[in-house]
């Protein structure tokens, strides 16, 4: 009841604050039955606060008893709106002898075959830098999403960079959780100690991958994937101080 009044008050407030031109269109309102309004902020969570068992004890589900991992199923709703054609996948149980299977290994293999994007390392000041000067490294991560058909299932992949390993090319590396930024930011820098030509620098990015089967809930892949970036060559020069007359 309280939430109803909150919504009514919110709706009234929104209407009263709306510009006059909008009030001219007040004939059509958003339906109060709309999930986007009524269920705003209400999400179904995997760990429910409590399962109500006040009326009678819960009986175990014979289909799910002793099932340590979730089972993913897709059911079609026919034009008469009776249910038919449920199709099941068990992403984490490759030994299950029943029916079609889709294992996490299949998804991992597919993600590897697709290839997650490698990132180009950007270096400032440019193709040349100086010994003992903070050289800036950064990269520009891109969101990666892909939908694939795998063993008859619709699988959505979503990969997020979570770790960047900067290979400076002088035998040193550094790992960060951020992709760095260009100058004037100095998020990721490195000071070369010796002059050298053709130093081969790159960034290896570690992706955390999640997936969902047939539009079901997102699941994290139990393993991260690394994409090694292309090499960028730079020359490290030694600067000699020179006094000049202005």
């Amino acid at each position: 009841m309280k939430s109803l009044w909150v919504q009514v008050v919110s709706l009234s407030l929104a209407l009263s604050l709306a510009p006059m031109s909008a009030q001219a269109d007040v004939d059509v309102n958003p339906s109060k039955r709309k999930p986007s309004l009524r269920l705003e902020g209400v999400r179904v969570v995997r760990q429910a606060p409590s399962i109500d068992r006040t009326t009678s004890p819960v009986t175990s589900n014979p289909k799910s008893r002793n099932r340590p991992t979730p089972t993913f199923t897709r059911c079609r709703v026919d034009p008469e709106n009776s249910i038919y054609g449920c199709r099941t996948a068990r992403p984490t149980d490759p030994t299950d002898p029943e029916g079609p299977e889709l294992t996490e290994g299949d998804i991992l293999r597919a993600a590897r075959e697709i290839g997650l994007p490698s990132l180009e390392v950007k270096i400032q000041p440019g193709e040349e830098t100086l010994v003992n000067v903070a050289t800036i490294f950064y990269t520009q991560p891109q969101p990666f999403q892909r939908s694939i058909d795998l063993l008859g299932f619709d699988v959505d992949l979503d990969a997020t960079p979570v770790r960047y390993r900067w290979v400076h090319g002088d035998g040193t590396t550094r790992s960060t959780s951020r992709p760095g930024r260009p100058y004037p930011a100095m998020d990721v820098t490195h000071r070369y100690r010796q002059a050298a030509d053709g130093v081969r620098a790159r960034v290896d990015v570690t992706y955390r991958v999640r997936y969902r089967v047939d539009g079901g809930a997102w699941q994290g892949l139990g393993q991260t994937l690394v994409a090694s970036g292309p090499v960028a060559e730079l020359d490290v020069k030694e600067a000699a101080p020179v006094l000049t007359k202005p």
Binding site: V44, R46, A48, I51, V58, N61, K63, S64, R65, R67, P70, T71, F72, T73, R74, C75, R76, V77, N81, I83, C86, D214, G215, G216, A217
Partner: peptide, 14 residues
């Protein structure tokens, strides 16, 4: 409602 995606766990079905 359209097609339903189910995730079946031990005590609940999503």
């Amino acid at each position: 409602i359209g097609d339903l995606s189910l995730e079946i766990e031990s005590e609940q079905t999503f």
